[in-house]
């Protein structure tokens, strides 16, 4: 659905996005992570035909980004939620959605149905005639997401959808995105929130002007960090460490009374490790699987 090959954007001497290659399948939720200034918003703007690309190629559906004849078609099949929601505070929630429905040429009957559907779904129907200026940030964000859906787009671009929201509002927005995911919409999400990316996204890419890594969140964690088994003991001694070392060429860390062992197949290896420690006189309190968070992976990649 979204294909980019060596997509590049330069502003004078500054390269904002450098040779970005990525492919997002239909119905996939793809998260783009990266620090401020990494080029996430620029990427979305290029893919939404808001700014031109300097190099490379990109397509959405069957339309080519950069081809003047395709620009309007691309904009008609995508929905964009920018970082700043940009609603009209002086207009009511209903009129905001109605305006965008008209801009996308949604027929009146359909427009009314969709506005009612989304406003009811988001719990805003009772406030439909109230000025958006009186809404909380969370309500505005929900309304802005409804705006991006008013023309039933094939692809959604969400730029930091939960930024600056309180935890409750973030959760409401996140749940709404998860509902959209169930509808098998293609969603391209920019976020700083790694927990959000992990919960929502099928795959994530880490962007630092260039795409540093891209995979499923769990695969990224495994490939960059490995799997670790943590064993809490009464006490760690040389005999225990030697017993574990004899089982395989694993990396072993000792942290107080804990042994942290880098394993490859925990289901097979953990019982042997537990057995060996027991035979070496160790008393085990707990055995736990240690998984790095996506944040750990992100920080490792971004800092490197």
């Amino acid at each position: 659905m979204i294909d980019a090959e060596n997509l590049t954007k330069k502003f004078d001497n500054l390269t904002a996005v450098d040779n970005l290659t990525l492919h997002v399948k239909e119905g996939e939720v793809f998260g783009l992570l990266g620090p401020n200034g990494a080029g996430k918003t620029t990427t979305i703007r290029m893919l939404c035909c808001l700014i031109s690309k300097t190099g490379g190629e990109a397509r959405i559906d069957d339309y080519e980004i950069g081809n003047v004849a395709d620009q309007q078609k691309i904009r008609s099949i995508i929905g964009l939620l920018p970082e700043n929601v940009g609603l009209y505070d002086a207009l009511s929630a209903y009129k905001n959605l109605d305006f965008y429905g008209r801009m996308y040429k949604v027929k009146e009957e359909q427009r009314k149905e969709r506005i009612e559907h989304f406003l009811k779904m988001l719990g805003l129907w009772e406030r439909r005639d109230a000025s958006v200026g009186t809404f909380s940030k969370g309500m505005k964000q929900k309304l802005a997401i409804a705006r991006t859906l008013i023309h039933d787009p094939k692809v959604l671009f969400l730029d930091e959808p939960t930024a600056n929201l309180d935890p409750e509002a973030s959760r409401t927005v996140r749940d709404f995105i998860l509902d959209l995911k169930k509808e098998k919409r293609t969603i391209f999400l920019n976020t700083h929130n790694l927990d959000e990316a992990e919960r929502i996204c099928d795959r994530v890419g880490i962007l630092k002007t260039r795409l540093v890594a891209v995979d499923k969140p769990e695969k990224l964690r495994e490939s960059l960090w490995g799997i670790k088994t943590e064993i809490q003991l009464d006490a760690v001694n040389d005999a225990i460490v030697a017993a574990v070392k004899r089982l395989g060429p694993w990396k072993i860390e000792i942290a107080g009374n804990k042994l942290i062992i880098g394993v490859s197949e925990p289901e097979k290896e953990n019982p042997d490790i537990v057995d060996a420690i027991g035979k070496a006189g160790g008393r085990i309190h707990f055995v736990t699987q240690v998984s790095p968070t996506l944040e750990d992976v992100y920080l490792k990649l971004v800092r490197s």
């Binding site: 808001l50 904009r75 920018p82 940009g86 965008y100 996308y104």
Partner: peptide, 14 residues
């Protein structure tokens, strides 16, 4: 000021 230009520019309008 309301930062509403970007969503407007994302529509198919020229």
């Amino acid at each position: 000021v309301e930062k509403s230009l970007e969503p407007l520019l994302a529509t198919p309008a020229t």
